[in-house]
Each structure stands twice: as structure tokens, then as C-alpha cells.
Design a protein around this nucleic acid. Sequence first.
DNA 1: TAGGGCCTGGACAACGTTGTCAGATGCGGG
DNA 2: CCCGCATCTGACAACGTTGTCCAGGCCCTA
Lengths: 349, 349
Amino acid sequence: MPETPRRAVGISGNRYGNRPTMKDVAARAGVGLKTVSRVVNGEPGVTPETERRVQEAIDALGFRRNDSARVLRKGRTATVGLVLEDLADPFYGPLSRAVEEVARAHGALLINGSSAEDPDREQELALALCARRVDGLVVIPAGDDHRYLEPEIKAGVATVFVDRPAGRIDADCVLSDNFGGAREGVAHLVAHGHRRIGFIGDMPRIHTAAERLRGYRAAMEDAGIAVEDAWMSLGATDPGRVRRAAEEMLTGPAPVTAVFSGNNRVTVTVIRVLAEQSRRTALVAFDDLELADLLQPGVTVVAQDAAAIGRTAADRLFRQLDGTLIAPERIEVPTRLVTRGSGELPPAD
Amino acid sequence: MPETPRRAVGISGNRYGNRPTMKDVAARAGVGLKTVSRVVNGEPGVTPETERRVQEAIDALGFRRNDSARVLRKGRTATVGLVLEDLADPFYGPLSRAVEEVARAHGALLINGSSAEDPDREQELALALCARRVDGLVVIPAGDDHRYLEPEIKAGVATVFVDRPAGRIDADCVLSDNFGGAREGVAHLVAHGHRRIGFIGDMPRIHTAAERLRGYRAAMEDAGIAVEDAWMSLGATDPGRVRRAAEEMLTGPAPVTAVFSGNNRVTVTVIRVLAEQSRRTALVAFDDLELADLLQPGVTVVAQDAAAIGRTAADRLFRQLDGTLIAPERIEVPTRLVTRGSGELPPAD
DNA sequence: TAGGGCCTGGACAACGTTGTCAGATGCGGG
DNA sequence: CCCGCATCTGACAACGTTGTCCAGGCCCTA
């Protein structure tokens, strides 16, 4: 028997491309609407015989429950939103995947959105997600004012900020120990005899960049080294800018003998520049990179565990939804110094 | 005036944490429901004075439209789904981001889901997305039978398969030229004097792995080389398996003098193994890697453009939704051989 | 001043589902 | 033989929005 083409003559008016609804299933099975609902949701109170009839109708019609309607009725979407900077950045892939896994364990799906480091876009995205009534929101802030989320949080949207703290509101945060990590990394260079150490980082308005710079300054101060302005360069992470910054530091009468790179985007360019130099310059980088151990020399890094951060954040999100969590907290995830060679080079002069 | 706490005594019954609805806004502004709807959607036919009153009420109550209800009414969710293998894989991050950008240009959001290369999970995910009535679906297949999507496609869900073709249904596909790319890569090794060339790839049931193997065989045949079984190893991409495979090929009386790596996960392990060997073995790898140019020697790769693939797929998706597209097509995106040194090493014996 | 057209605003139904509640059915015991 | 109870089933309202349609008021013209 050829399947009946439901895509009728053009009348119908049923959107969703003429999809069958529970009503259609009910009619076909000769039962009430609610009975279909019960079967679909595996609720008790349906005779096997009835269930069989309903199931048959479902299969015959190719029915699939419309979760939009369900959501409207139930009030929970089983969806969480993740606003990050750029999914193409290798730091965020694993983070997103970790959030997804936790969500999956709670039966929820994940909507990803990239803010491209633009505060307006972050807000637009976060609010669009709220309009869809996501149950929770994980935000990697681009902006520094998140009061726009206050009504949403009050209305019950679980919210966790990651990688950078929330601005001007009190909320859960999961952060790396940026300050401590950078300090440790720079101290490592100092311990190997360096005094003129450069710092190349992201834009200073970004919290992580500022914290890592602070860590750099602290380590230098610990060592009793007066930092010169020419040793520090903060700005966009595009290769051109980073390249110029690195080249400037490496030339002149008193070039730096070591560089601390504040971010994985910066690192890849710095490595390229250093590879071109005749003099060997030491390097410690914030964030691990794939293959970093295979370069000559291996790149010493301050590693963050993106997956652990994502997992922690998502856990907290769902605990907020459970009601297990009361007060917002700031959680710091430790970093780990991984020595591979580039950080152990002695000063070249 | 302190804002009225709508989180009332526990009665109310309003889910969504007591959110105000258009009805509340209408009551407060002293207008009809539809007028609020008009204001919210920027529809014409509202006097500036009325609009002001409504806007005031919206702000005062912190109203935000419930898109779940909107979706139910309108039949379009402005959401697309992307089922991929693993967002943590550096190949998929850029791909996902590209899909997201195109979706964003069409006012849509993106739900990502990882199948972890498990066909059942792929199906579960894809169908869950359909239940949410995504407008379209981009699928990177894990399984090889996609008939389960037939009713959905018939019901109007735009669908594009990426990276691997759809199984047993006729649908749009966007693929890399896996066969041609691998053939070119292996031919490159042959051209540099190699005859005993190994192939290490992903599980053979995966289309890309099979195609790349086919490309390998073709190139070998072109060169009149009889391939020995010991030169080929297909299987999981976990480091242990790959390491054993590589080490086997590289030992014995007639070890391979060059390796073709069929996938980026495989490549990182192969590079590690080769780096440990005393003998220099040539390498060409399918898929580019960050920093591949900085290794010693630089890794010669057959590069795929993940972003272009994602963009192409998403474009087609929205053209399906426009109705611009009629017949399913299979689009092949060319690969590009990038020579960096590892592929140009001569045979070591 | 009456009539007609235009503009604004609002009542109402509908989208597809689930929760509530009451009705129907069957069975066993008094 | 009838009643009561347990089990199964279905009618109906509600979720929050948007599309349809009509009412009323205004202005302009004859």
C-alpha cells in the first residue's frame, strides 16, 4: 500500500509541513487525545491493547511529538545556552563539549553562540536565548556589565559565568587562576636567569588578560625587577599586531631574553616570530597547544583544563536548577605549569 | 517606587518563575493584548502615545517575549541543529562556527550535539532536534543508514549531510574530495621516491576513512606498486592503537619509508612516534594542524577547509528552506596539498 | 450634516501539548 | 442482582503567542 501523501492539495493550513499531531493519531487509533499523550510519554494507565493501537497509528503517520508545544505547557525547555567567544578557538571546543556532556546527562540540549568578543553581540545572544526560555545560561563574558541579565536571573534562569567574572552583578563564576598561573610562569623564567621578560597579551579590558598581566607584574616585583613599558604589549590577538609587538621587544639595544605569552592566539604567532630569530629566546605560554611538546624546543605552558572548567560550570548550573545551590560563588580552577624546554632556555646574552 | 515582587505567595501557578506575559503588560498599559504584540514585534498600526505606554509597561515588568509560544504559533523555530562527532575535535570547531555564522545571518540559532561517532546517539540526537522542530539539520553522519530521517525530511526539515554522505536516502551532501586528496598526497610521496608507504586511518566503516584508503590504493596502483597488507591499518583513533600500528609498520625487515595519515587525530600520534625514531620517515597527513608548519620538519598536509565546508552546507540548508533548491546534490569541496618538508624527505634506505 | 474610507485597537480562536477531573467499564463481594 | 471500587479513558482548559476580523472613531468630501 503506497503511503498516503498528507501534503494535501494546498489547503490544510497545518504548518510544520503538515505534520500529524496527537489529534490525528487519536483519530486514527480511535482513542482520546490524552491517551495518545499517555502512550507517547510512557505514562501508566493504558491497556496493552490500546497502547498497541496507538503505537500503530503513530508509526503509520510518522508522528513525532512537538516539543515546542510541550515546552509551552511544561515551562521547562531542557535546553541550556552557552555564549562563548569563538567556537573555532581550540580552547572553547573542549569547553563546549564538556558542558554538552553534563547537559546530556541531565537530558538537556545545548545551544552555542559566539559573541566574537563583542559585548553587544553577547547581550543580544544571551537575551535571545532567554527569550527561548533556556533553563540555564553559561556565559563567557565579552562585556563587563551584566545587569541586563538581572531580570532573567530573577525569573529563574540559572546562570554561570566562565573564564571571566560577571560584571556588576552577583553570580556564579568559574575561573582559571589566571593571576597565579601567570605569576608562576613568569617566576619560572626568572628562575632560569631571565630579567628582561616581555609580556604579550590580549586586550586589557578582557579580564583574563588583565589578570595575567597582574600575575606577570607580581612575579617581576617578587624578583625585584623594575618592569619597563617596552616589555608589555596588550591588544588584539591578530597575527599582525602580535608580530609587530614581538619584533619590537626582540630588537633594540636591550631586547627581552624571554617572552610570556598571555593567550593561545598570541602564542602561535609568537612561536612563529621566535622561530625566525637567530637568537634563542625563552618562552612560556598561557594555555596549552596541541603539538606544543613536539616543537623544537617544546613549548613550556601554563595549562588550563578547559574540559574541567566546562564541567564545573555546567554542574553548578544544574545544581542551581535543582535548588541545591544557594549563594553565588566564585570558583577558581588551578592551572598547571608544564615544562617542555622553551621555558628553560637560559638568557641569550 | 520599589518594583512589585511578582514572585507571589506561592499561588499563581505561573511557571517560568512567574514571568510577566503580554496579558500582564496589556493590563498594566491599559490596552488590548494584540496591541502589545504589535509593539513587541514592531508592527504598524499603533499610535506613538500608545506605543510609549506599552513600552513603559514592558520595561517596568521586565517582560520578554516567550519564543516557545511564538514558535508554536508560527511554525518556524529559527533554529537549526548540527549533529557532529565531537566538538572538541579541532576540525569541527571551525565548521560549527561557520554554520553558526550563516545561521546568524538568517536570524537563526544553532544547537550543537556530539554523536561521539555512535550511530545510535546520532539518531537519538537528530530526532530530538526534530522533536524541537528545528527548521533544518546539518548532520555529520556516524551511522550509515539515515532512513529514520525520511519522515522528517518529508515533513519539511531541511537537511544537509556533511563530511560523509547520507546512508540509503537521497539528500544534499557536502564532502571533501577525500579520494582525490589522499591520492594526491600519496602520489606526492611516490614522486619523492617512496615505494613502501604506510596508511594509518580511522575505522573503515567511516566513509572518509574508506575514501582516503581508496585514494591511497589508487595512487599506489598508478605507481605500479603492489600494496602489502602490513602497510595498512584502519581502526580507532586512540593513541594506543595508532602508536602500535605505526610502530609495527616502522619495524621489521622492510619497514615503510613513508606514512600517509588519514585523519588529524591519527596524525598527532604518528608525529609523536616518528619523532622518537632514529630513521627519518616521510609523512603526509590528511587535515591541517595548527603549528604543523613549525615542527621539524614541517608537516606536509592535505588540507581541508572546514569553514568553507560548513558555510557551503549551511547555505544549502537555507536555500532548501527558501525553496530555491529542488534536487538533492552532492557537492565536493577540493582539498589542497600544502608541502612543508615532511612529505619531501627521501626514503631512508 | 450625512456618508464613506481609513486608521487604531481589541476580542477571539488557534497552534499542539499536558494536567485535571469526571465518566465509563469491569469485576468481585455482599 | 446490585453496589462499590479500581482501572482505564476522554473532554476540557490552559500554556503565551499571533492571525483574523470587526467595531468604533476620526477626517474628509459632497
